[in-house]
Amino acid sequence: MADLTLDLPRRTATTDFVAFARGRPGFLFGLAVVALSVLLAVFGPLIGPYPTETALPGQPLQPPSWRHPMGTDVSNMDILSRVIAAPRIDLTIALVSTAIAFVVGVLLGVVSGFFGGGRGVPRLMSEGIMRGADIIQAFPVFIFALALVGFRGPGTENVVAALAFLNVPYFLRITRGAVLQVRERPFVEAQRCAGNSELRIAFVHVMPNALTPPLANLSPTIGFSILLTSGLSFVGAGVPVPTPEWGSMIAIGASNMMTGQWWTALFPGLVLGLTILGYALVGDGLKEYLDPVNKR
């Protein structure tokens, strides 16, 4: 019905970010998690009460106590110290791989979106990029990550490379979608009339206007990359033991879970889950903040 779509009062882009965040406990929680994870990535290994990669003297597998709030693991390493040291490697891998994927994905997305539906070489390029993305996404994510690391051998750089590669199609698609909309706006035609080259229009005028969706997806992708990293480390294909890393800590504690030492895997996994949740919530919040029309 034509005018049933009422002009409900809408949030404007100028709405104060603080006011926006204040009403959203989930978003605030996410922001706190992200801030904390960054702090721990920088200072985590320094502030733990015990060394993070060496066994302590005495009985292993101590349950949580005042001395060891999260207990100790099978080699009597302090779990708390390792849990707060882990963001350094987990976050570094996730940040670097996501940054690479973002840059490559956005560039390819602009090319494929801006030149899609045209003719000649640019069109072929655009189609080729999309088919390439299709093929990468034909492999189940974790199996592909496993295979990439497997064929290249374990090690941090290979995990980064694998995750970056896997996340490219994701940013590519999001950017392409945005570019397809932006390129229809009148100002693009105006730039063309002003004599700008197509390439210049694509990267100088269209790209900045299409960055919001991929930017809003940075945070959840970082969370997802942390999840993949920990999964790879869990099966021994990621960060090698004894580097403090949540997934490998869970692996170390796995067999203890079946004999009742619940703290060995519970705490690393809990912190891991909360971190991923935090990054996802920040992503949700930013999406809502940056896109007033989609506001619920």
């Binding site: 019905m1 034509a2 005018d3 049933l4 009422l6 002009d7 409900l8």
Partner: peptide
């Protein structure tokens, strides 16, 4: 003109107004 409330009136007659209306 559009926005004058014609369609809302029709929906009110049919009992089709849902919150926030």
């Amino acid at each position: 003109e559009s926005g004058s409330g014609k369609t809302i009136l029709i929906r009110a007659v049919l009992g089709l107004l849902d919150p926030p209306l």
